[in-house]
C-alpha cells in the first residue's frame, strides 16, 4: 500500500469558516491531515518575519502557521477565493494568498482550489481538480465533496441553534462580537478579549454564527453598496441580533481594509446600542485593551441598571 499523503492545513484565516468541509473532504479521500497548532507568540513572530510589513496581522499569522508545519507535510493547502457572484467578492488577501505562499515557500507543493465564479470556477469544479491532482478516483471525489459539504452545513446549523438557545436562556448581559472568525477564534487576537468578557459574566454573541443567507439579505438594512461577502454576513448579523444584545464590540486587525471601512460605517450609522471598536496589532499591550474593555462594560452595566430601574 502506498504511503498516505500528508496535507498541511494552517489553523488561520478561512480555516475557521470551512474547517469541516476541508477536513472531511481530505479524510474521505484517505489523506492524512496535519493541522498547525493554536497561534502562539512564536508563530506570530515567524509570520511577521515571512510577510511584508503592509500585510494585516491576520495574514501575517497565517504565514506563521504555514512556517510551523511546512517541513512535516507533502502538500500545503492554500485555497484561492475571488468571488461568489457579481457584487459578492472577498478581500484581495484571499485572492493573493495562494501566490504569496507559493513565492514565499517555493520548495513546497501547494494544493489549492479556486473559487472565481465570474470566471466559471465554482467550488465543486475546484474540489474535483484538487482531488484529481491527488490522483483520486473521480466518483470518490464527488462523493467526498458532497459528504463534506453536508457536514459543514450541519455544523453551521448546530452552532446557530446552540447560540440561539443560549441567547434565549441566559439572562446575563450579552455582547455581540463583530469580527471575522479568524480573528475571534485566534488564541492571540480574539481569545483574550472573549476570555475577559466571560470572566466578567458577559455572554459573547458571535456575529459569524448566523444563517449566512439571511444575514446577507439583512445587511441591506445597514448598507446597500457593500460588495465584500464576509463583511455583509457580519453586519447582517448586527441587524439580525439587534434586539437581543446590550452592546457591540468590533474586533479587527491592523491594517484590515474591509474592516476599517465597514466598522466605521457601522459606528456612524447604528445608534441604538453602545459600541466599541478594537483594532489590534502586533505591538498591542494588554493594559490599554483592558482599560477600554473595562470601561465599556461599566457603561453597559450602568445603562442596563438604569433601564431596569425605569421600567
Amino acid at each position: 500500500m502506498a504511503k498516505l499523503d500528508i496535507i498541511g492545513i494552517p489553523r488561520a484565516l478561512l480555516y475557521y469558516k470551512y474547517r469541516y468541509l476541508w477536513e472531511c473532504f481530505f479524510k474521505e479521500l484517505g489523506c492524512h491531515i496535519l493541522l498547525s497548532p493554536e497561534t502562539n507568540k512564536e508563530i506570530m513572530d515567524q509570520g511577521i518575519n515571512h510577510s511584508i510589513d503592509e500585510s494585516c496581522l491576520s495574514a501575517k499569522i497565517y504565514m506563521g502557521h504555514i512556517y510551523a508545519i511546512i517541513n512535516q507535510v507533502d502538500y500545503i493547502f492554500v485555497p484561492r477565493f475571488c468571488n461568489f457572484a457579481r457584487q459578492e467578492t472577498v478581500c484581495t488577501k484571499f485572492n493573493a494568498l495562494y501566490d504569496i505562499v507559493r513565492n514565499t515557500f517555493p520548495h513546497k507543493e501547494v494544493l489549492h482550489y479556486n473559487v472565481d465564479v465570474l470566471k466559471r470556477n465554482g467550488e465543486l469544479k475546484g474540489f474535483i481538480k484538487m482531488g484529481l491532482a491527488l490522483k483520486k478516483n473521480f466518483f470518490l471525489i464527488v462523493k467526498a465533496y458532497i459528504k463534506a459539504k453536508l457536514k459543514q452545513k450541519h455544523h453551521d446549523k448546530l452552532a446557530h441553534k446552540q447560540q440561539a438557545d443560549l441567547i434565549n436562556n441566559e439572562s446575563c448581559l450579552k455582547m455581540l462580537i463583530v469580527a471575522h472568525p479568524y480573528n475571534r477564534y485566534d488564541k492571540l487576537v480574539g481569545f483574550p478579549i472573549i476570555k475577559y468578557l466571560m470572566e466578567n459574566n458577559i455572554m459573547p454573541v458571535y456575529a459569524d454564527i448566523v444563517d449566512h443567507k439571511v444575514a446577507r439579505q439583512r445587511s441591506l438594512n445597514i448598507s446597500k453598496t457593500l460588495h465584500w461577502t464576509y463583511s455583509k454576513e457580519l453586519i447582517g448579523a448586527i441587524d439580525y441580533y439587534q434586539d437581543k444584545i446590550d452592546g457591540i464590540i468590533f474586533i479587527s486587525t491592523f491594517p484590515c481594509g474591509p474592516d476599517s471601512l465597514v466598522n466605521e460605517l457601522c459606528l456612524r450609522k447604528i445608534k441604538y446600542v453602545p459600541m466599541l471598536n478594537l483594532v489590534l496589532d502586533e505591538l498591542q499591550g494588554e493594559a490599554g485593551l483592558h482599560t477600554r474593555l473595562e470601561s465599556f462594560i461599566d457603561i453597559i452595566k450602568i445603562r442596563k441598571n438604569k433601564q431596569e430601574a425605569v421600567s
Binding site: P274, T291, R292, S295, D298, I299, I302, R303, K306
Partner: peptide, 8 residues
C-alpha cells in the same frame, strides 16, 4: 447622569 460613550 450616566456615561453613554467615550473615546481615548
Amino acid at each position: 447622569g450616566i456615561i453613554v460613550d467615550y473615546a481615548m
